[in-house]
């Protein structure tokens, strides 16, 4: 019987339940995350048992979730975008200056964020898709440009005091059914910030986009093999262009969420986020070669990355270097697992 095809009782052909690469890697990621978190609860207990602790991972990383999803989409088409951290930083600074010195409000902040993202996306997408320049070089220049522009906008950190903004920033959405009594015995409901809701909405939206729309399937097709995608009638250039635009717009949105979380503009905002986003995507099962990946996996990638950071910190290795070293070790482990799994499958 040909591999991958089976006949059911009625004699109809159906696909055998062989998992695609995407599903396999996604399963690994989710399983690893749950094992990690369960292990933390069992062996470390303490703060890990409180729901708020888990929700804080989301609160602190709403922007990273959005950035990583954008990164995954570009990686699925076989590209890369390392300008997302820079864009985040630029968006934070510009929004802060806008709120403080130009009397902006929430609407202008969102418009600025998406506008900056769109501008970066259009330029980078054009250079990558239509002029055929390597995405790494293009987005490297994008990162340099964004970081340089940030200091041109303002060298000093800008702290926001705008009331309308602070109201949104401090808005807390209680999660029903979760919560824990504090030391005085008063029941404190667990909360998430506004950014988390937006980030989760984006994950669901992007999952639907990748799964059920023509554009989403085109991303996978182009990443898998752009010549055969071309022969299938997919406009490869347009698809790549749109992937970069989407990624940068998401980076802009991520910038707004970051800004909502920290409430200030600073040159150090979003530093290293491009690498965190790439790492989360990889842990989430996206391959840099393209064609394989899933935003749900990326979401769990972000969670795993930050869970391991917390575990390391609560084990008492709170010197700054341990967190980096464990993240690197985890990245290494995942890469090797993926590589071994995929090499084996390809050999069969």
């Amino acid at each position: 019987m040909p591999n991958g095809i089976a006949v059911d009782k009625q004699g109809r052909l159906k696909e055998r339940a062989a998992m695609s690469d995407t599903t396999l890697l996604l399963t690994i990621t989710i399983v690893v995350f749950f094992i990690l978190y369960l292990a933390a609860i069992l062996f470390l207990g303490g703060s890990f048992t409180k729901p708020q602790n888990f929700l804080n991972i989301l609160n602190n990383n709403a922007s990273l979730i959005v950035l990583s999803c954008g990164m995954s989409i570009v990686m699925i088409t076989g590209g890369i975008d390392i300008s997302v951290g820079g864009v985040t930083c630029l968006v934070c600074m510009t929004c802060a200056v806008n709120l403080e010195q130009q009397g902006g409000n929430m609407l202008t902040v969102i418009l600025i964020g998406l506008g900056i993202g769109l501008a970066f996306g259009v330029v980078q997408g054009f250079l990558v898709a239509h002029l055929g320049i390597q995405p790494f070089i293009v987005s490297l220049a994008g990162m340099f440009f964004a970081k340089g522009m940030t200091t041109i906008v303002s060298k000093e950190p800008v702290r926001v005091t705008n009331e309308g903004f602070l109201a949104v920033k401090d808005m807390r959405i209680n999660v029903p059914g979760l919560g824990a009594p504090n030391k005085l015995g008063v029941y404190i409901p667990a909360y998430v910030e506004v950014g988390v809701v937006i980030a989760l909405l984006m994950v669901i939206l992007l999952f639907c986009l990748l799964r059920w729309t023509g554009l989403g399937r085109a991303f996978y097709a182009v990443g898998g093999n752009n010549q055969s995608a071309n022969m299938l009638g997919i406009n490869v250039r347009r698809t790549k262009f749109l992937a970069h635009v989407l990624c940068s717009v998401l980076a802009g949105l991520g910038g707004v969420l970051y800004f909502l979380h920290v409430g200030s503009g600073d040159v150090a905002n979003g530093a290293g986020d491009e690498m965190n986003a790439i790492a989360s995507s990889i842990i989430g099962g996206t391959l840099l070669t393209g064609g394989v990946g899933n935003v749900i996996g990326t979401f769990f990638g972000v969670l795993s990355l930050n869970t391991i950071k917390r575990i390391v910190a609560s084990l008492g290795f709170d010197e700054a270097w341990w967190s980096n070293i464990t993240v690197a070790a985890m990245l290494c482990l995942f890469l090797v697992i993926q590589s071994v799994v995929l090499l084996r499958r390809n050999k069969k």
Partner: peptide
């Protein structure tokens, strides 16, 4: 080794050292 024997894309493989290198240096 990661690049040649595990066939990991160079940029991703070196991302590990990129993340850990400065921390190892401090250590």
């Amino acid at each position: 080794t990661l690049v040649a024997y595990f066939k990991i894309q160079p940029m991703v493989a070196t991302l590990i050292m990129y993340t850990a290198g400065r921390s190892i240096a401090a250590w």
